[in-house]
Write a protein that binds this DNA or RNA. Structure first.
Length: 305
DNA sequence: GCATGTCAAGTTGTG
DNA sequence: CACAACTTGACATGC
């Protein structure tokens, strides 16, 4: 009933994704830049396919794809189009294999743009860059068959309702291939489920419920209530609910419960998720990645809940 | 080789 | 006011 999701990378399994720095790339001439970026893009595409094979063999039903699959794609100076890469055809072919494999094995794919993507920002330039990044990730989502591109609302700027209004306004201007993939996740400082639920319903955006963030940043809702509200937003578009879980590295009593620990403490796993009589996705945000999934699965079976 | 400092980008809270 | 935290360490440089 529960499919567990792995986020971005592996801890022990030797499947690696490569990066590039703008500084390093800038030193090359344009042809050299595209050669290197192409090489990394093809490497990462093959790693993604290997990641899905691993997932299939280990009963992992979801995988989050790292934003840097195509490094520096939206960078103002060294950014590029997929077709600029010498190996664009090979890269696209591997993406096609990824899409086919994920569909055949029912592995749910998602993206999680990083903190620089803030549609609610009052700074126009930040919004423009954010939209550019979302267009990139949604374009890639189409090629590899990813369902979700999951966002945070971002900053408050001293006035939550105004920030949410700015978000809505920008959201409505986005092209369909972007709009149809975006989801909103409650965060650990600013926006909780109570804040996001109304705007998610209004705009038809599914709400990804992160129970760890909810515990760091409570809103008066119980875990059960927040789970129900989130589930409702997924039902509204006929899709499978998607949740996140992690455990605090320094324990719940510390002043900083936000940092993630190596594994998931089975006691942090909401009992109500086990009782939902339906298929759900739970991404594990834990440093030890595939090892954490194996351990949690084991703990859930052996530890009385 | 291996150590260590650095890396495009936003926003918030802590020490 | 610098730094860590956020979905993630890897790359570049210097010895």
């Amino acid at each position: 009933m529960i499919r567990f999701g792995l986020c971005c990378i592996f801890h022990e399994e030797p499947i690696k994704f490569r990066h590039a720095t703008a500084k390093g790339i800038s030193k090359l001439d344009r042809a050299g830049q595209l050669d290197k970026l192409s090489e990394i893009a093809l490497h990462n595409a093959n790693s993604l396919l290997n990641a899905l094979r691993f997932a299939d063999e280990h009963d992992i039903g979801a995988f989050r794809i790292m934003s840097q699959m195509l490094p520096l794609f939206t960078h103002p100076d060294v950014g590029y189009d997929l077709d600029d890469l010498p190996e664009a055809d090979e890269v696209k072919q591997v993406y096609g294999s990824v899409k086919q494999f994920a569909a055949a094995k029912d592995i749910r794919l998602s993206f999680h743009p990083d903190q620089f993507v803030v549609l609610a920002s009052p700074t126009e330039k930040v919004v423009i860059n954010s939209i550019k990044e979302l267009c990139y990730q949604c374009m890639l989502s189409e090629l590899v068959g990813a369902e979700n591109v999951n966002l945070h609302m971002g900053g408050v700027y001293g006035d939550k309702p105004s920030a949410i209004k700015r978000f809505s306004k920008v959201f409505n201007t986005l092209p369909d291939y972007v709009k149809s993939r975006l989801t909103l996740e409650n965060d650990d400082y600013s926006y909780n489920v109570a804040d996001l639920y109304p705007v998610c319903l209004e705009l038809g955006i599914p709400l990804v419920y992160d129970v760890h963030h909810h515990r760091c940043n409570p809103d008066g809702l119980s875990v059960e209530e927040a789970t129900r509200k989130s589930t409702e937003t997924w039902d509204a578009c006929g899709r499978e609910p998607h949740f996140h879980i992690s455990s605090p590295r320094n324990g719940w009593d510390s002043s900083k419960p936000q940092p993630h620990s190596d594994y998931i403490d089975v006691n942090d796993f909401p009992e109500c998720w086990l009782k939902l009589d339906r298929k759900i996705t739970v991404d594990l945000e834990a440093k030890f990645k595939e090892l954490a999934i194996e351990r949690l699965r084991n703990d859930l079976q052996t530890v009385k809940h």
